[in-house]
Simulated scan of single mutants.
Amino acid sequence: MQRRTLVKGAALGGLALLGGGFWALPGGPRPAAVSLEGALAVLGTLQGMTLRSLKGWSPSEVFNHCAQSIEYSMEGYPALKPAWFRHSLGPAAFAVFSARGAMRHPLDEAIPGAAPLLEPASQAQALERLQVAFERFAAYGGELQPHFAYGALDHGEYARAHVLHLYNHLSLIRPA
């Protein structure tokens, strides 16, 4: 009986936390539409610009990180959070991000098990890698791999996740 009460309390607390998180997310203007086309348009405006990061990763590391996430959605993530997480808290967090149209996550946290964000090292090449990853994803018709935290997503959900992820990271990128 006590275990059931504990589980119910934890579930209600988690829902309250997610609900509060919904309103804490930014809801203002985004760099472009939350679409693959919008993301590619934003990335196109960055070509040839010298960029700086307000804190954390360099622009090339950010572009490599976002490209990794897109590539892993097609090829498989190197490590996944436990199944219970990918079937409960992860999808709930994505539902909040998706409903709000904004994502907030630690902007210096690597994807679990991912390769270092060193290649390509130049900003221009990393930006190109990211653009190619978005274009490849847009044309991809194969089976998508489970997200390391959100679990199974369809193509539209993954597209939204990738774009929100990019826009969250771009919040710290400015022209030099």
Score class of each variant (00 low, 15 high):
Thr5Tyr: 09
Gly9Leu: 09
Gly9Val: 11
Gly13His: 01
Ala16Ile: 04
Ala16Met: 04
Leu18Met: 09
Gly19Met: 13
Trp23Asn: 10
Leu25His: 09
Leu25Asp: 12
Pro26Leu: 03
Gly27Arg: 03
Pro29Tyr: 14
Pro31His: 03
Pro31Asp: 14
Pro31Tyr: 08
Ala32Cys: 13
Leu36Glu: 13
Ala41Asn: 06
Leu43Phe: 05
Leu43Arg: 00
Thr45Glu: 08
Thr45Lys: 06
Leu46Glu: 11
Leu46Cys: 15
Leu46Lys: 14
Gln47Leu: 08
Gly48Asp: 08
Gly48Ser: 14
Met49Trp: 14
Met49Lys: 11
Met49Cys: 08
Thr50Lys: 13
Leu51Asp: 09
Ser53Arg: 02
Leu54Pro: 00
Leu54Asp: 05
Gly56Pro: 15
Trp57Asn: 07
Ser58Leu: 11
Ser58Ala: 12
Glu61His: 13
Val62Glu: 02
Asn64Arg: 09
Asn64Ala: 10
Asn64Met: 04
His65Val: 03
Ala67Asn: 00
Ser69Ile: 02
Ile70Lys: 00
Ile70Cys: 00
Ile70Met: 01
Ile70Trp: 01
Glu71Ile: 13
Glu71Arg: 04
Ser73Glu: 02
Ser73Pro: 03
Met74Leu: 07
Tyr77Trp: 02
Pro78Val: 04
Leu80Thr: 00
Ala83Arg: 12
Phe85Lys: 14
Phe85Pro: 11
His87Thr: 14
Leu89Trp: 11
Pro91His: 11
Ala93Ser: 08
Ala93Pro: 00
Ala93His: 03
Ala95Trp: 12
Ala95Lys: 04
Val96Leu: 06
Ser98Ala: 05
Ser98Thr: 00
Ala102Ser: 08
Ala102Arg: 00
Met103Ser: 03
His105Arg: 11
His105Val: 12
His105Gln: 11
Ala110Trp: 14
Ile111Phe: 12
Pro112Lys: 15
Pro112Ala: 15
Pro112Gly: 14
Pro116Cys: 07
Pro116Leu: 10
Leu117Ser: 04
Leu117Trp: 12
Leu118Arg: 11
Ala121Tyr: 03
Ser122Pro: 08
Gln123Asn: 05
Gln125Val: 11
Glu128Pro: 02
Leu130Met: 12
Gln131Trp: 00
Gln131Lys: 10
Gln131Arg: 06
Val132Phe: 05
Ala133Lys: 02
Ala133Met: 07
Ala133Asn: 03
Phe134Gln: 00
Arg136Val: 10
Tyr140Asn: 03
Gly141Trp: 10
Glu143Ser: 12
Leu144Asn: 06
Gln145Cys: 06
Gln145Ala: 11
Pro146Trp: 12
His147Asn: 06
Phe148Lys: 02
Ala149Leu: 15
Ala149Phe: 07
Ala152Cys: 13
Leu153Asn: 13
Leu153Phe: 14
Asp154Asn: 07
Gly156Asn: 09
Glu157Ser: 10
Arg160Thr: 10
Arg160Pro: 08
Ala161Ile: 04
Leu164Asp: 02
Leu164Gln: 05
Leu164Thr: 05
His165Pro: 10
His165Thr: 07
His165Gln: 15
His165Ser: 14
Ser171Glu: 09
Leu172Ala: 15
Ile173Met: 12
Ile173Leu: 12
Arg174Thr: 06
Ala176Pro: 08
